[in-house]
Amino acid sequence: MLKIARNLYEYRELVAELTRKDITVRYKQAYLGIAWAVMRPLALMLIFTLVKSFVGIDSGTIPYPILTFAALMPWVFFQDATAEGIESVVKNSALVRKIYFPREIFPLTAVTTKLVEFGISAFILAGLMVWYQMMPTAHILWVPVIILYTLLVSLTIALMGAAINVSYRDVGAALPILLSLLMYASPVIYPLQLVRDKLLVQQAAGEWSDLLYTIYTLNPLAGIIDSFQNVVLRGLPPDFSSMLPGMVLTAILLPLSYRYFKWEEAYFADVI
């Protein structure tokens, strides 16, 4: 782990420069420029709000639009960062074949780039909070920690995915689809509170209820989204009980994923 950190420090200028490149290139010839970055969460929020008016989802004391926007922010960040991270090595094949630097810089850069879009969405969220007259509490200081955790979750999938994608491009095509399915298994459209009520309080699945809830929260995004809403909108600390299973899973998988990436790295230039 120490070596990774040292590598990253040594190549920090490269990461910064590549990130700058990614962002500039993405919005270079677009009139609205970086404004496009927030179009997707905004559009999704409007659609979900529309759907909610037919279906009826209990959003508690928080207005549904802002609740779902606060869920979409970490979700979209996670989804885009992961997808981008998986494609990152293949996308840079010209560099991979010619010049050496630690290859994890590619997924890392791809993932960090998405922080910019996240930051812009944060302004929209702030605007919504002003509109709904909600005051943030000191718990909002948890946001960087939660985002860092999201970033690690994203890297866990991206490192492994990027390495496999070098040999089998299927991964680059399949994972975004799987990820968009994962959205329905994450508390984006509905708040986690609904799941918690159903399983933990009403024990809807009988004796299996507690186990099911643990399985549900194995998805790190369940905890992340709920905690993000907690610290920003509800003025509460993160709910660690819902984050724990996901955290354990990430703590196990991230080193494995990283090791797999480093092991495959030696052959990238040969097969890419």
Binding site: T24, Q29, L95, K98
Partner: peptide, 16 residues
């Protein structure tokens, strides 16, 4: 430290 001029122009980005 190795400076590889293996192929000049690897990594030039057209949009920049």
């Amino acid at each position: 430290k190795v400076a590889p001029l293996i192929e000049v122009g690897a990594g030039l980005v057209p949009d920049l």
